[in-house]
Computed example of a mutant assay.
Amino acid sequence: MKKYLQYRRGYLCIWLLLCSVPILVQLLYGQALESILYGVGLATVLVLLFMVHDFLHFREKEEKRKQVAQNMGSRELCLFETNDPVEKEYLDLLGQLTERYCKQAEQLQTATKERQEYYTTWVHQVKTPMAAMNMLLQKKDTPESRQLQLQLFRMEEYVEMILHFTRLEESGTDFVFDSYDLDELIRKTIRKYASVFVQKKIAICYDTISAHVLTDEKWFCFVLEQVLSNALKYTNQGSVTIAMETPGLLTIRDTGIGIAPEDVPRVFEKGYTGYNGRADHKSTGLGLYLCKRTMNRLHHSISLTSVVGEGTTVTLDLRREERVIE
C-alpha cells in the first residue's frame, strides 16, 4: 500500500487541491458549505472506488513484475499483457534486450568451455614430454641434472596450477568430501617436495598430527602444495615448520624473507605479487589466490602473517560444523 500511495501521490495531491479550492472560495465569500461539502464527499467516494480498483490492478502488475525479475535473463521470461502503449514499448524493449543477453551469454559460455577444454588438453599433452625429460635426467646424477630436475619440478607445479585454475573457473567442480587423516595428507605433500628440501638444504620440522579433516583430498593437497612451494621459494636458509598448536588450526611457518606489511592484506588478490614477487620476476600472483578460492569452496579459511626478514606463517583453519558423510 505504501508503495502504491507513493506511486499515485501526484493524483492524491491534485484531488486534495481540487477539493480545497471550492471550500476556500466559499469561506471567502461567507456562503453555506453544505452543497460544496456534498459534492466533495461524492467526489471522494468516487475517487476511493477508483483507487481500490487501481490498487488491485497495481498489485497484480507488481506480482507479475516479481515473476519477470525471477526469470530475468532467461528465454522463459513471460511478460504481462497491458493496454498502455508506453508500457507495451518498454516490454518489447525488455524482450529484445533479454534475447540479446541470452545470445551473448550462450556465446560466452561456449567460448569459456572451449578455452577450458584447450587448457586441459594442453596440460595433459605437455605432461608427456616433461615426464620424458624427468626420466632422462634421473639417469644422470650430476649437479647440473639435479638443478634441471628442480626447474622441471617447478614447471610441473605451474602446469598443475593452470589446470586447477581452469577447474575452479568451471561452475561444477569435482569435489568429493570425506574424512581424511590429516597426517597422511601432510606427509604425502612433504614427500613430494623432499628433493627440493634436500637441494636447498632447508630443514622440515614436523611431528605427527593426530587429527582428521572433512575435506576433498585432491584440492586440500593442492593448497598444502602451494603453501609449501611458496615457503621453499622464499626461504634460502633455515627451516619450514608444520604444526597444529591449536586444534583445527594448521600452521606452516618458514624462516624466509617475509612479506612487507603493506603487501600482507593483498596477498590473496588475483595477480598481486607484492614487492618480493616483483623482485623475484617469477611470481604469478596466482598461488595464494587459488588457495583462497579453494579453501572457500572447501568451507575452510586461510590467513597469513609475516615479518620482513623473519619469515611467514600461513594458517589453515580447518574448523567447521560437523557434517554427516553419506
Rank of each mutant, 00 (worst) to 15 (best):
Q125N: 14
L28F: 05
M133P: 00
I186G: 04
I23W: 07
H281M: 10
E60P: 00
E156C: 01
P22K: 05
M135I: 11
T315Q: 06
G277H: 13
I23E: 11
T241H: 09
E156I: 09
S306R: 11
V267D: 04
P85T: 00
Y206M: 06
V314F: 10
K201V: 04
E156N: 13
A279Q: 15
L224N: 10
Q237W: 05
S74K: 15
S301D: 13
T173C: 06
L49A: 07
F175M: 03
S35N: 14
Y289E: 06
I190N: 09
K127E: 14
G287P: 01
I209C: 14
T305R: 09
L150R: 05
E34A: 15
T98C: 03
E76Q: 10
F80W: 11
L136I: 02
D84H: 01
W219E: 05
Q31L: 09
N71R: 07
T173Q: 13
W219S: 01
H57G: 11
R146A: 08
T284H: 15
L18S: 03
F58D: 01
I259Q: 03
M244V: 10
L46R: 02
L288F: 15
L318A: 07
L94M: 14
F175G: 02
G277N: 13
K66E: 14
L93R: 14
P85V: 08
C291G: 07
M295K: 00
R187T: 11
I209P: 07
V198N: 08
C78E: 11
L298E: 02
E81G: 00
L108A: 15
E326I: 11
L46N: 06
L46T: 06
Y119I: 15
E144I: 02
T246A: 13
L42M: 03
V308S: 08
E262M: 07
G39W: 05
T173I: 04
L286S: 00
I252G: 02
H124P: 01
L27Y: 07
A132R: 05
S195M: 12
V240W: 05
E87Q: 14
T142M: 10
Q199L: 12
K140H: 02
V21C: 01
K192P: 01
R167E: 14
G256S: 05
E87N: 04
Y234C: 13
L5F: 12
H164Y: 12
A203K: 12
R65L: 15
W15D: 00
E89N: 03
V40S: 11
A132Y: 03
D181M: 00
Y275E: 13
H124G: 01
G238Y: 04
K127W: 01
A243G: 03
